[in-house]
């Protein structure tokens, strides 16, 4: 059995952006708990899966995406391979690995959201969230990543890649689900077979 955790690829979690007051204490605590659970039960180094830098970030000289930076901070020495997108389909090599997945939902969930309000965002995130919580990742194999891009759901391609590679052995434990800044975050864990 391997252990898998999903946390948001939110730069607000990065240490270099810390303010005097933590704007996301509950989210941060949930991420720490999920990562601890994976690391404690991992059979070796933990693989991290996240989106790579956006083309615009890449053009500005960014080498490691915020998801990749966060994986390094959260896992520290436990980090093995970093698989950073673009990922276009199932990544078979992820099977049998202990995983930290950095992915989130739409950033267009309200008028104050980074991408303003898109009325389709809630239904999209509800569907993804339900699939993640149920552990039935097959429901994400045909996730509409083009719509995800319109909805600023940076995690959509990551989650679709995960769907073909990992089969949870049961429902997830959901440690956090919410959209404090108009971006959908999930923190959940599950075990996967073999």
């Amino acid at each position: 059995m391997t252990r898998v955790a999903v946390v948001p690829a939110a730069p607000v979690l990065l240490a270099r952006h810390a303010g005097l007051v933590d704007p996301v204490p509950e989210l941060r605590a949930a991420c720490a708990a999920a990562v601890d659970w994976v690391v404690v039960g991992a059979r070796g180094p933990v693989t991290a899966l996240c989106a790579g830098p956006s083309p615009a970030d890449r053009a500005r000289g960014v080498v490691t995406s915020h998801g990749g930076q966060l994986a390094a901070e959260l896992l520290g020495e436990a980090l093995g391979e970093l698989v950073a997108g673009p990922v276009t389909g199932p990544v078979a090599s992820l099977a049998g690995r202990d995983l930290l997945v950095l992915a989130d939902g739409s950033a267009r969930r309200g008028e104050k959201a980074p991408g303003h309000l898109d009325p389709r965002a809630t239904a999209y995130d509800d569907e993804v969230g339900a699939a993640l919580a149920s552990g039935d990742l097959s429901r994400l194999r045909d996730l509409d990543v083009a719509l995800g891009e319109e909805l600023w759901a940076e995690g959509a391609p990551v989650l679709r890649a995960l769907a073909g590679a990992v089969e949870p052995s049961g429902a997830s434990e959901v440690l956090f689900s919410g959209d404090p800044f108009g971006v959908q975050y999930w923190v959940l864990t599950w075990t996967a077979g073999s």
Binding site: P11, V12, L14, G19, L20, G182
Partner: peptide
Amino acid sequence: RRPPARAVRGLA
């Protein structure tokens, strides 16, 4: 020398 009180802009 001092972090902002609370930083979220562009980081959500």
